[in-house]
Design a binder for these strands. Structure first.
Lengths: 353, 353
DNA sequence: TTGAAAGCGATACCAG
DNA sequence: CTGGTATCGCTTTCAA
């Protein structure tokens, strides 16, 4: 392994000269710099980031805490975040928390001991995040992605607005009996999407003689939840051809749930969208490939990643500059991105209208 | 930030004692160790991995070079690999190469300067991997995942066998005109799957008066390729109700391609499986949720990840022990996992038989 | 414009 | 069983 000393002797200069020639932190005469650069190229020198980090107190690395890469939304976000980070010269340490508080705490330890400059944190769960709190106490820059947490900088989408758009679409088509398949009940994203849906439905039918009926089921952001719940509902007589007053539309809190529901509806021979409309959330790629293709709310993953990295790196820079009076700079900016409804085949007018 | 010195003074011992009390590298009297541990707990001390790595020449970190996390197979593998690595005390640095040789080289630089102990490498592309060669020359332990590369340790599946199982299933159902939708033509995984398919078809129909007709199309491991190619074929009169001697089955080189193909077939009103059977490869979760559900070859992602991490860590240990006579230990073990065909709704007997 | 030397936070060797 | 100290590879004053 070739070190800065090797370069120094090869170029016939001191190590400080080499260091400065490479960092540009002080003027170096052109001939000297050329000799250094030549030696670097000749010996294939690569500065040791560990040593650099040890003295500079900064590693240009970020920790990415994500609940579950098997969820395509998270893997899309992970990809986008990593690409953005790399463009700005940061490396990403990947951590699969599996929604497990113990694992989270564990990872936080590892990341801190690896001296990461900042944390990208996906809550994904509704339990009060001890790990997140610990990180904040350690004064390490954190950006929460995909969820709003008070007093913590974050990037997320207008989930209420997304829910509202769904509601407006469905109300306009005459749907007023709707089954909502949520993820975990306590999840803010689930609650927000539901809130938007509910409010737009109520205001749409306000003053008319049709009553809004919103049937709620909660579970998890997984296809199996959608699949099983639809079958459960059928078994309970809430859904199916024999059911009276069955919902005419199903709104899933994310695309995975919708996918599971779609499969179950097919098994129950319930025609989508003729007998029952179906809407997802996230805008995953596969939603355009299902049969029927899925109406969904598109999340701008690239933009989210963009703002998240920007926010985080800004905070890192701030905390570097104001190492002492850090609390003074303690703003908690929140970036909200709009979402857009993508209407596809899975939605039609309510039957009998 | 609290350092080992702080612990030493807090516990009233020397730094070496603290170090050894924590590492267990030499006997420490019980009372002393207790005092050290108490101080550690009290001050929330976490050893700085940078400093540790600088002296110990090992960082317990791995680089994961993956072409594209948007592909669910890769994200499933990434998740499994990271979980395994974490269980063994290793952190994973995520790198999205996007099949771009320049990015790969770039990442390799970063990873080397970060002193990773080893590399998990997904080729994903067929171009001769300069980055991989460079890594090998640097003597850094590498394990190639998902593809066999001569003289490089690797973990992959029996793609030929998977192709053969597909061929046997289809031949048994009377399919002898088959459209194969490959990924990139030069990809070994694509070639192997095709080879297995072809050989089993030929041997099944050998000696009969039915001729095997295998139509080949190559493109990329993406849904859009499957979608567009099926439409192209229809436009060319190779597929569709008007086509004479249209293939009775489509074999896609992976599940994404199959998903795209399924959608296109639906748009062409070609019934799957009554008019055309469809088979994928990878065994992604969504394949059981499509309509019809997809027959596919299941890859054991967990097992693959397991062997890959094991292989890599073994090699790391070896290269640590034999730092000098390393080439002597230069075996290139290759682990092959079997795959299993999962038969679902998308396959039926060839029409008219 | 350049060099010498003091650390960064840990490990491990050498004494005692 | 414990303590001092050189060292890892680099950045960064401080002097020249």
């Amino acid at each position: 392994m070739t070190t800065i000393k090797d370069i120094a002797s090869a170029a016939g200069v001191s190590v400080s000269t080499v260091s400065h020639a490479l960092s540009g932190n002080r003027p170096i005469s052109e001939p000297t710099r050329a000799r250094v650069l030549a030696a670097v190229a000749a010996l294939g020198y690569r500065p040791n980031k560990l040593a650099q980090g040890l003295v500079s107190k900064t590693t240009r690395s970020l920790g990415l805490l994500v609940p579950d890469l098997a969820n395509p939304f998270f893997s899309a976000m992970a990809e986008a975040l990593e690409v953005q980070a790399h463009e700005r010269g940061y490396s990403v340490i990947l951590c699969n928390t599996n929604l497990d508080a113990e694992r989270e705490a564990d990872y936080l330890d590892v990341l801190l001991s690896r001296q990461v400059d900042g944390l990208l944190y996906f809550p994904g769960t509704s339990v009060p995040n001890r790990a997140l709190q610990a990180a904040l106490e350690k004064q390490i820059p954190v950006v929460v992605v995909d969820e709003q947490i008070a007093h913590v900088p974050g990037v997320f989408v207008d989930n209420v607005g997304g829910g509202r758009q769904i509601g407006e679409l469905l109300a306009g088509l005459g749907h007023h009996r709707i089954l909502f398949l949520g993820g975990a009940e306590a999840l803010p994203t689930v609650q927000d999407r539901l809130r938007g849906l509910r409010s737009s439905l109520y205001s749409a039918f306000n003053g008319t003689d049709t009553a809004v009926e919103l049937l709620l089921r909660f579970g998890a952001y997984r296809a199996s939840f959608g699949y099983e719940t639809v079958h459960d509902c059928a078994r309970e007589g809430l859904l199916g051809h024999a059911a009276v007053d069955a919902p005419t539309a199903i709104v899933a809190a994310n695309d995975l749930i919708a996918l599971g529901a779609l499969r179950a509806l097919r098994e129950l021979s319930i025609q989508v969208p003729q007998e029952c409309s179906l809407v997802g959330f996230d805008g995953l790629e596969f939603t355009m490939l299902t049969t029927p293709s899925l109406t969904t709310v598109q999340q701008p993953t690239g933009l989210i990643a963009n703002s998240a990295i920007e926010l985080l790196i800004d905070r890192i820079d701030v905390s570097l500059d104001h190492r002492d009076d850090y609390p003074a700079a303690r703003l908690a900016p929140q970036v909200v991105h709009p979402v857009s409804l993508v209407v596809r085949e899975s939605v039609a007018a309510a039957p009998g209208r």
